[in-house]
């Protein structure tokens, strides 16, 4: 008997060989995701953008955030960031249309992220207010390594793509073919492996800066 058959047989005999009704299993599984508010934390603020920013900048996530009115202001925001850190205007830009379309004059750009890249600019598909997370999908315009190799990661996310809870991301993509990688990124890379003390920049970025584009809650 193959290993597969042996294991499945052992599972069935362990369970008492009862017949499975797939429709009933599905109903039970769905029922386990009812009443989500009772099993997840509340948001930190009423408005989604405010709640998102509160999480991103909380000590637990320890990233930084700023808001801009439109994407065209992103290059200026990047310029300010570079200046604050005293970094040259040499950046890796994710090959995504919303970023490529902007006016980057004054910057030296490349789209391949080097192993020791200082700074990469990316765009997230979604933000999650519950956790202050950014969601990326691998694809033709999203190399996964670009999220992990640079020391500084600057990420643009549109205010209208901020979802309340992680569950809303699952619901938004249910039934679609998943990409090879879904990265849910929450803050910069960190480790507590030496005596439990937190150090940032373990293997991935040491700095994560989130730029939110669009109307903040307060002016809605």
């Amino acid at each position: 008997m193959s290993a597969r058959e042996t294991i499945l047989d052992a599972v069935r005999s362990g369970l008492g060989n009862t017949a499975v009704d797939p429709a009933a299993v599905r109903r039970d599984a769905d029922a386990l995701l009812q009443d989500l508010p009772s099993i997840r934390p509340a948001l930190l603020a009423d408005g989604l953008v405010d709640a998102f920013i509160a999480r991103v900048t909380s000590p637990k996530v320890a990233a930084t955030a700023e808001c801009i009115a439109s994407a065209s202001e992103l290059p200026a925001a990047v310029g300010r960031y570079l200046e604050a850190f005293g970094l040259p205007a040499l950046v890796a830009l994710q090959p995504a249309a919303p970023l490529q379309a902007l006016d980057w004059s004054g910057f030296e750009l490349h789209d391949r992220v080097a192993p020791d890249e200082t700074i990469a600019i990316g765009v997230a598909r979604w933000g999650i207010a519950e956790t202050g997370s950014l969601v990326f999908h691998s694809g033709a315009d999203t190399p996964i390594l670009a999220n992990f190799l640079p020391l500084h990661h600057l990420v643009m996310v549109r205010a209208d793509t901020i979802l309340p809870f992680l569950d809303d991301y699952a619901a938004a993509t249910a039934g679609q073919r998943p990409p090879r990688n879904v990265n849910i990124v929450t803050g910069a890379s960190g480790t507590t492996d030496i005596e439990g003390s937190l150090v940032l920049g373990a293997h991935g970025p040491r700095f994560l800066h989130v730029v939110i584009v669009g109307t903040p809650d307060s002016s809605e």
Partner: peptide
């Protein structure tokens, strides 16, 4: 495990590199 709300990186891996993917 750690007292955080989520880990810094939660990743779902589904199959090999897809047509057009930049890496994988």
């Amino acid at each position: 495990a750690t007292g955080a709300d989520v880990t810094q990186y939660t990743t779902f891996h589904c199959g090999p590199k897809q047509p057009g993917d930049r890496d994988g």
